[in-house]
Design a protein around this nucleic acid. Structure first.
Lengths: 140, 140
DNA sequence: TCAGATAGGGATAAATTTATCCGTATTGCC
DNA sequence: GGCAATACGGATAAATTTATCCCTATCTGA
């Protein structure tokens, strides 16, 4: 298991949230669990792009951070279910709003994301350069 | 400049948001700009743990994604200011709520984060294993 | 008997992100 | 003159995250 070499930066609430929610699939995993996809195999079908390995790793971290709970049924073939903890559930409204914002701005987001991905060589260089003569020298 | 080798996963609003907000310092940068810290040097003082290099990289991405605007004053020594775009500003309420949630749950977050960081070898293994005999075999 | 479903995880590779180091420029201050 | 402040970005290294590959187990159904 990989162990961090740098110390986390925990100054404000935003930093703390980052620490537990930063992970490529974490927010989506929480959301799908909330939607009733409790078993790892169900989650994987919902998010085909994660590999099972990575899904397990992120689930473990969410569990360590007490956002979800793992329940192992001692049966064969194996059965495991994850559920949101009360703590994890308090995040749902936030995740909901974030998803909503994304949906509302879907087109624009898709445009800007695709524009600056891969080989799209955009040379517009649209930085605004103030040409106001007052700024010819920095006001002290 | 690094160019991605994998295609982005853009199925729902949540995926889209992830694409523009995923970056160790991005949310905090947006927040500090919102708070009036417009110049790169001011931002760096607010977030001492980012290096100027990385700060520039993330600012560039936020700019590419149209969340902030860069204004260059042609003066010497150089002066640059970033501002939230109207689009970027629509994110502020969300970021505000996230930060609030983090503040509210500050203690718990700090605890779970520190517990599972670095060398803290916790062997509690608190997974819940159902011992209900009904699950001795999987119900079909 | 063999494929497929279920779930887990070690070792390792690849991708990505973040950090370090250094060089460019100019002005002002001691 | 030397040093700090302002800002930018290439080359490269280190850290971190994510992915690939492979092996373990058992049961069901074709």
């Amino acid at each position: 298991m990989y162990v961090k070499k740098t110390v986390p930066y925990l100054n404000c609430g935003l930093d703390l949230v980052g620490e537990v929610l930063y992970g490529k699939w974490k927010i989506r995993i929480l959301w799908f669990i909330y939607q009733g996809n409790l078993r790892p195999s169900e989650l994987q079908r919902k998010i085909p792009d994660v590999t099972r390995r990575v899904l397990n790793v992120q689930l473990k971290e969410l569990e360590d951070h007490e956002l979800i709970t793992k329940k192992i049924y001692p049966v064969m073939p194996p059965k495991v279910e994850y559920t949101l903890t009360d703590f994890g559930r308090t995040l749902i409204p936030l995740i909901g709003s974030i998803g909503l914002w994304g949906d509302e701005h879907q087109e624009r987001l898709r445009r800007v994301i695709l524009k600056h991905a891969a080989q799209s060589s955009d040379q517009s260089g649209s930085d605004y350069v103030a040409d106001d003569p007052r700024f010819a020298t920095l006001p002290s």
